[in-house]
Nucleic acid binder design. Structure first.
Length: 474
RNA sequence: GGUCCCAUCGUCUAGGGGCCUAGGACACCACCCUCUCAAGGUGGAGACACGGGUUCAAAUCCCGUUGGGACUACCA
């Protein structure tokens, strides 16, 4: 008896969008939860649109998210190959079997004819699917079409009875026989259609649980029928509700930056993204929100997955991200930020970056915030932003010049000493700490917002601080 | 149009007949803390779509209405 086998079968369209990732995650969680096998299968039969780069993007995203696969591209497995483009021969063979068994038939209807009859059926208020005409062709008629040189597709002869699916999250779903019409398995150019490939692969790969979006719910009975016709055992199905965008429309390219890549570039941690996605349609119970991976695996249960759609909430993701960010130690936080500094065109001194971590940890929501907050350390271009310029302009006459002199005279350069000096300076000018420190902050960092000032200045070094303050004073 | 799916605070959810004058989280508001910004703390506002049933009792079960969504291809 084989254990639980789950799969994720994305079309390689570049970076995965988070709705797909949620499906991948739940499938992965179910496999892990049951000490089962997680399979990655790439649905790349639509060769025209698939690039090697898009394929790599999918693998990269999954790895970044920590959704490791036991069978699939680059890791192999006993049920390969795992790219549908490499399985074309298998689909051919299966179509042949279906044809000889009479479970499928050649259909010679042209697109125009189909369209016409569809429109007519619809006008009569009947289900618009294929009417089954070629299913009943006589040998003579078939021969005539062949002689005529008509091209043909292979259609599946859908058994005419009611279909019942016991979906793991939707419960019992029924379809009347009349609603499930004969569908195309193989196009006239010989290429397999999704419905065929999925069924064949799930069967051959011995998948036990198909966890996917509920936009595929209606294709379940077709998948099952094909597998049955092939003599296989159909897997159990769990159709997940859609992930919605802020406008409550299914999340799609229309919502712009919803790709894993985009979130990574915006400075989100994979564990935060995973955590948020896990909470969409599933709840760990006990009012838990932050759920570490291991615990997520232990608590996950398809039976507890909700069947109503959930909207992806960047605000909540951001909050979750800060929770994880605060849990990172200095080395990790620094290491995870480095690539974003590079992306921002900033070269970093690793030691200095590392020392700055305690200053920013509790004031960043994304890794990009780390870059924004620390930019002044790694770039001497600190032209003040508008608010900073206003602070500098609003300082008492000669205030910054005085500050430079006082700081220059300090016996030692450490946060405590700097802080005391700044306070004395402020009191001398009749200002409170807030008012007194802000102009200095603006001069040193170019911004009205920064990590704690004395500590920041210690890190920056006396010379660079003085240079900036004098420049601002001028 | 047909078939199917879905319906608790703005959002994610807990809830699976009495424990609910509906709990938690994000966001929001106020206050506290405070060198800016955050983080943190305290408090606040905020929901069972509607209408019928069933039942001693319904957010929870059933039906309908309304509203969303999916599918309805030689797309996946």
């Amino acid at each position: 008896m084989t254990g639980v086998r789950c799969r994720f079968a994305p079309a390689p369209s570049g970076s995965l969008h988070v709705g797909n990732v949620r499906s991948a995650l739940f499938s992965w969680l179910w496999a892990r939860r049951n000490d089962g096998t997680f399979i990655l299968r790439v649905e790349d039969t639509d060769a025209s649109r698939v690039t090697e780069e898009a394929f790599r993007g999918v693998l990269e995203d999954l790895r970044w998210l920590g959704l490791d696969w036991d069978e699939g591209p680059e890791v192999g497995g006993a049920h390969g190959p795992y790219r549908q483009s490499e399985r074309l021969g298998i689909y051919d063979e299966m179509v042949g079997r279906l044809l000889t068994d009479g479970a499928a038939y050649r259909c010679y209807c042209t697109e125009e004819e189909l369209e016409e009859r569809r429109a007519a059926a619809r006008a009569r208020g009947e289900p618009p699917g294929y009417d089954g005409r070629c299913r009943r062709l006589t040998d003579a008629e078939r021969a005539a079409f062949e002689a005529e040189g008509r091209s043909s597709v292979v259609r599946f002869a859908m058994p005419e009875h009611e279909w019942v699916l016991h979906d793991l999250v939707k419960g019992e779903v029924r379809w009347a026989a009349s609603d499930l019409r004969d569908f195309v398995l193989q196009r006239s150019d010989g290429s397999p259609v999704f419905l065929l490939a999925v069924a064949v692969d799930d069967m051959l790969m011995e998948v036990t649980h198909v966890v996917r979006g509920d936009d595929l719910l209606a294709s379940a009975p077709r998948n099952i029928a094909v597998i049955a016709a092939l003599g296989g055992t159909a897997p159990a199905y769990a159709h997940l509700p859609q992930v919605l965008g802020p406008d409550r429309k299914p999340l799609s390219k229309r919502h712009g930056s919803t790709s894993v890549e985009a979130f990574r570039e915006q400075g989100f941690l994979p564990e935060a993204l995973v955590n948020h996605l896990a909470l969409l349609g599933w709840s760990p119970g006990e009012d838990r929100e932050i759920v570490p991976r291991q615990e997520m695996i232990e608590r996950f249960d398809l039976a507890r997955v909700s069947s109503n759609p959930a909207a992806f909430d960047v605000e909540k993701l951001t909050w979750i991200n800060t929770q994880y960010l605060q849990g990172l130690d200095d080395d990790e936080l620094a290491a995870r930020s480095v690539h974003l500094f590079a992306a921002a065109g900033l070269g970093v001194d690793p030691a200095m970056l590392r020392r700055a971590m305690p200053l920013v940890r509790e004031r960043v929501r994304t890794l990009r915030d780390v870059v924004d907050l620390l930019r002044f350390l790694f770039s001497d271009d600190v032209a003040p932003n508008d608010r900073a310029a206003a602070l500098i302009a609003g300082a008492p006459a000669g205030y910054l010049k005085e500050a430079a002199a006082a700081l220059d005279a300090l016996p030692t350069w450490d946060a405590a000493t700097i802080g005391t000096a700044l306070d004395e300076l402020a009191t001398g000018a009749g200002l409170n700490r807030t008012k007194g420190w802000q102009p200095v902050r603006a001069a040193v960092t170019g911004s009205n917002v920064s990590p704690p000032l004395p500590e920041s200045m210690e890190l920056l070094g006396r010379e660079r601080c003085l240079g900036r303050i004098r420049a601002a004073a001028a």
